[in-house]
Design a protein around this nucleic acid. Structure first.
Length: 626
DNA sequence: GCCTGCCCAC
């Protein structure tokens, strides 16, 4: 074994730690470093890598997801050891597969003359990790039936993990039976993998049964249960498991917290977010950047931007993800100038922005109408910051150009995109057509969207609204007929308000609330006041081609308006009223919220799937473009 | 010696 030049004892201890934690790290002339070396330096110093070190370094390569490094090491390995007989070959197989190159992995594997169980496991686990489910299952079958090899528990772990993918449950069930015959189900890791497999496929009963039947659940078992409930949209049940876990005296970890914060976001209860924040504080894990970032992200999504920036300020050494999360918060709340300021500070501090940072920065510019700034950042992002333009960036730019009314520029940008434009990109342009009433282009763009995704109701509604606004009732009703035909089951619009520890839900014309009478009276009172102040209904936003009066009645019972009336009745007048909507906010409700914010002297925040609208003194933070 | 379950945040 060759000696490695000038590595201190400390470097080696870091090396082993990194190896265990699978962090990327590399060998430099000075020793070990986590700075990724250049290609030339890799080639220059490749003679330094001894066989065992190569194998360990390859583990490090796993996490940096760059196939180039894998190949560089591969080349070195071929020169230095007979990898076909050694464990290095196994690792390479696994790495190629998990880096998303199953063909390389398969070829290398096929070349290996002595394939033992570990070799097979390397292939199977690699394919499982990178979600090549079919390839993974066929490798498993080949191993079992063609080679007659008996799988061990490592094989089963990989296989069950692969079968948690959609559509592979039946195979998973079958292999579950096989594992049972081999007596594998006493292993806690195997059962955890099964809980995930059944849970992710929607079989919560089976997941629950396995969990309860366990002799001793470990932390991962609990985390898995919490996660599968959250993934199935049962956030309340997920929180219930978390409480049970605490009662059972099991200490939580980062994985628990990230899942619980996710559940909390799904529930949308601000009170709960506060309690979890308290729990995080009491366990002194605020120093954990990952958890702090998830928490600040949660607060931002729940409409509490102040709380987000407070959490951000308390992070001792925020990384680029934390900076980006804060920037995203400013963006979605329409604080474009703050987002730009934050970006400048971030860069000044030497934190490298990545493609996600630029997505949010451009979206911030777009959401706040900072058209020139957005254009500038789009131009310099690759030149100055070395961040390649991706699909999302083009999407933001189309939105930005559309907002400023430059529809043809937006169209040109789409046409010269280096990648195929997706429905998101065309959708941004269609929205611009709606705002600027461009029927001609709107029709063309909508047609493209209909062929890309025929079942997406939003595009039909958008086009129908474009026609209605232009008074083209016949065309509008044709589009609506098309919608009915292609997407008969539409999500009803609903709005949510938190009061006490409960979330109240409203749909259009809702009378299910026990205080419906009071709510409708309040709504009538508000509308009366607004009319007096010269506010008219924007009836073009109603999708029914009926006479004006009926139109106005329906629009006056939109879920946003009911939520607003209810919120004004029951929530603290000193606090902003926060409403969440599952669909894009309607134009008439948008105008009404502006008027109410002025007349009732109340800040109203409405969150729709795209952004937050802050209504204050008769104005909205979106500048009437959304 | 290698292969291994949950969450992996923007």
């Amino acid at each position: 074994m060759r000696k490695v030049a000038s590595c201190s004892a400390l470097s080696f201890s870091n090396f082993y730690t990194n190896c265990a934690q699978r962090k990327p790290f590399f060998l430099s002339r000075k020793g070990l470093s986590n700075v990724i070396p250049s290609r030339s330096s890799l080639e220059l110093h490749s003679h330094l890598y001894s066989d065992w070190l190569v194998s360990a370094l390859i583990v490090g390569v796993n996490s940096c997801s760059r196939v180039f490094y894998c190949q560089a090491f591969h080349a070195r390995v071929i020169k230095s050891v007979n990898y076909r007989h050694g464990f290095v070959g196994d690792q390479l197989v696994s790495n190629y597969a998990r880096l998303g190159y199953p063909e390389y992995a398969q070829n290398l594997f096929d070349e290996m003359p002595n394939k033992d169980l570990v070799s097979w496991n390397s292939l199977i686990s690699g394919l499982s990790r990178s979600r090549f489910t079919t390839k993974c299952l066929s490798a498993f079958c080949k191993m079992r039936f063609e080679m007659g090899m008996q799988p061990n528990y490592v094989t089963f772990l990989s296989i069950f993990s692969a079968c948690s993918d959609e559509g592979a449950l039946s195979e998973g069930k079958c292999i579950h039976g096989f594992a049972m015959k081999l007596g594998m189900l006493n292993d806690v890791k195997i059962v955890n993998a099964l809980i995930n497999m059944y849970g992710k496929s929607g079989y919560l009963h089976e997941a629950c049964r396995l969990f309860k039947a366990m002799l001793l659940q470990n932390l991962v078992s609990w985390n898995s249960m919490i996660a599968v409930y959250t993934q199935n949209g049962l956030a309340e049940e997920s929180m219930g498991i978390f409480i049970m876990m605490r009662r059972a005296g099991v200490e939580f970890d980062q994985a628990t917290m990230l899942t619980v914060l996710q559940a909390c976001e799904n529930l949308g209860v601000r009170n709960l977010a506060g309690s979890i924040h308290g729990l995080i504080l009491s366990f002194g894990i605020t120093a954990n950047v990952t958890i702090a970032t998830a928490l600040l992200n949660l607060y931002s999504k729940l409409g509490c931007l102040h709380a987000s920036s407070k959490v951000f300020g308390e992070i001792i050494d925020p990384d680029n993800v934390a900076w980006t999360a804060m920037l995203a918060g400013y963006a979605v709340h329409g604080h474009g100038k703050d987002a730009i300021k934050l970006f400048q500070i971030m860069v000044k501090k030497g934190v490298q922005p990545d493609h996600v940072t630029f997505t949010h920065l451009l979206s911030a510019c777009s959401h706040s109408g900072l058209v020139n700034e957005g254009k500038r950042y789009f131009k310099i992002m690759s030149e100055v910051y070395g961040v390649e333009r991706k699909l999302d960036h083009y999407s933001c730019m189309v939105d930005l150009l559309g907002r400023s009314g430059h529809l043809s520029d937006a169209y040109d940008l789409i046409r010269c995109m280096p990648m195929e434009p997706t429905s998101g990109v065309w959708g941004a342009l269609l929205n611009a057509c709606r705002v600027y009433g461009n029927t001609e282009l709107g029709k063309e763009v909508a047609e493209r969207l209909f062929s890309l995704d025929p079942s997406d109701a939003r595009n039909y509604i958008m086009l129908s609204n474009i026609y209605s606004s232009a008074g083209l009732w016949r065309e509008a009703s044709e589009v609506r007929a098309l919608l009915k035909e292609r997407s008969p089951y539409r999500t009803p619009g609903c709005s949510f308000v938190e009061h006490g520890n409960k979330i109240y839900r409203f749909v259009v014309g809702d009378r299910s609330h026990p205080q419906a009478e009071r709510i409708y009276n309040k709504l009538e009172e508000l509308i009366g006041k607004i009319r007096k102040a010269g506010f008219m209904s924007k009836t073009e936003f109603v999708l029914h081609d009926v006479d004006e009066e009926v139109k106005e009645n329906m629009i006056n019972q939109h879920s946003e308006k009911l939520a607003m009336a209810f919120g004004l009745l029951v929530t603290d007048a000193a606090m902003p009223l926060i409403i969440t909507k599952n669909l894009r906010i309607c134009g008439d409700c948008h105008s009404m919220a502006k008027a109410v914010s002025l007349i009732e002297r109340r800040t109203i925040i409405i969150r729709d799937p795209k952004r937050f609208h802050h209504f204050c003194n008769g104005l909205c933070s979106c500048g009437d473009y959304w």
